[in-house]
Computed example of a mutant assay.
Amino acid sequence: MENILKECGALLEGHFLLSSGKHSNRYVQCAKILRYPDKAEKVLKVVADKIKDIDIDILVGPAMGGILVSYELGRQLGKESIFAERKDGLMQIRRGFEIEKGAKVLITEDVVTTGKSTLETKEAIESMGGEVIGVACIIDRSSTDIGMPIYSAIKLDIETFDESDCKLCKDNIPFVKPGSR
């Protein structure tokens, strides 16, 4: 799996400011994988195989990174795929999408790091009566428990730092902010 990341130029090295506010010396830009439907299909087949026997009613991908993941997993599993998006700073289910009360919902992401957008999406789903059963993603780079199962194509251990502890900041290496927030 890591070879596909490298082949697509998705595994980056440097100094990065993550959307969580943390800093890192490596970054995974899954959009570089998802631009190739054949590679997206291959990578997400690994995830689809892990979740194919789970009772799922609907997939919800937070904008931006989770939308294509939701669509491709929905295609492979024959499940409905919708997305959540930010409005007025809050993750919301909009555009006439509905989640039935008691529906079993799997959140889809490109990368899970801190789980911030996943947890915001979970709140939006639960406010509509949905039951979140986990999160499916291409890359699991989480270092803390987000309170739900994570089904990923690959787990990567990539260090993250608070700005005050970032050795790259201390070495005056400028950062890049590649995230979507």
Rank of each mutant, 00 (worst) to 15 (best):
V105D: 11
Q29I: 01
E2T: 11
G129R: 07
L156M: 01
G130I: 00
E80H: 11
F16P: 15
L5P: 12
K155Q: 09
K167Y: 10
R141T: 14
V105Q: 01
G21Y: 08
L18T: 10
G147Q: 03
G134T: 08
D110K: 01
M64P: 12
S117C: 00
T114S: 15
Q29F: 03
T121A: 03
A63V: 14
D55M: 06
I138R: 04
V28C: 15
F97E: 09
E98L: 05
K52A: 05
D55R: 06
D57S: 07
T160A: 01
G74Y: 02
A31G: 15
K45V: 00
K104H: 05
E120P: 12
Y151D: 07
M148Q: 13
G74D: 10
C30A: 02
E159F: 07
T144D: 10
G61H: 09
D55L: 08
K155S: 06
Q92M: 11
E41T: 11
I56K: 07
P174D: 01
L90F: 09
A136C: 14
L44R: 00
L59R: 02
A63S: 09
V60T: 08
P178L: 06
E120N: 04
S164Q: 07
V105W: 05
E163F: 10
D49Y: 02
D145V: 06
I51C: 13
Y71I: 15
L106G: 13
D55H: 02
R181P: 11
F175T: 14
E7R: 13
R94W: 03
D162Y: 12
D49Q: 11
A136K: 04
R94C: 05
A124F: 00
D55N: 13
G65H: 11
G147V: 07
T121D: 02
I99Y: 03
A63Y: 05
E131G: 07
I125G: 05
T118I: 13
K50R: 09
H15C: 02
L11F: 12
S20M: 06
G74Q: 09
Q92F: 00
D162H: 09
M1F: 05
D157V: 15
K177H: 13
F97T: 15
G115A: 00
S19E: 08
G96F: 03
K116H: 11
G61L: 05
L18Y: 08
Q76S: 03
A63N: 10
A103R: 06
D165C: 01
V47H: 09
L168H: 06
Y151I: 08
E131P: 05
K39A: 03
K6V: 07
E123V: 15
I158W: 02
G61E: 13
T160Y: 08
K122A: 06
L44N: 04
